[in-house]
């Protein structure tokens, strides 16, 4: 695979745990006991299917409080094989981009306004030093 992560995948605050689509279905089913799990599964799949179709149609998706998805065209460029250093031609392609919404962005960063759990870790982490 060419391209990929520019970032080293370290420092995820909760690295061991993850939620998959089936975990998500499970959780939705738990919170909506009046709807069968089978129906929940169909709905979750329909959500992502319809989002994918929308993106394929070149549409932008905006989920308020969550974020937006948009397909951008990446121009053809000359890249390099990171292993060999050899130049390679990368043709133009459409790539989906996600822009996190304000609310979720703050939630993820542990915004104090939303929850009142003030992590000690967090407080320690914020040293203000404006090097002017």
């Amino acid at each position: 695979m060419v391209g990929g992560d520019e970032e080293v995948p370290t420092g995820c605050p909760n690295p061991g745990s993850e939620m998959t689509k089936s975990g998500l279905i499970e959780e939705v089913a738990k919170r909506t006991p009046h709807i069968s799990k089978k129906d929940t599964e169909v709905v979750v799949n329909t959500i992502f299917d319809s989002m994918i179709e929308s993106l394929r149609g070149g549409e932008r998706i905006e989920i308020r409080g969550f974020g937006s998805f948009q397909v951008k065209l990446r121009e053809a460029r000359e890249g390099r094989n990171p292993k060999t250093g050899e130049p390679v031609h990368i043709s133009a392609k459409r790539t989906p981009f996600f822009k996190v919404g304000k609310e979720l962005k703050e939630m993820v960063d542990g915004a104090p306004s939303i929850s009142d759990e003030s992590d000690d870790e967090e407080a320690e982490a914020s040293h203000h030093e404006a090097t002017a």
Partner: peptide, 9 residues
């Protein structure tokens, strides 16, 4: 995600 957990769809 707020709990730092990944979500993989």
């Amino acid at each position: 995600l707020s709990e730092g957990e990944k979500v993989k769809i």
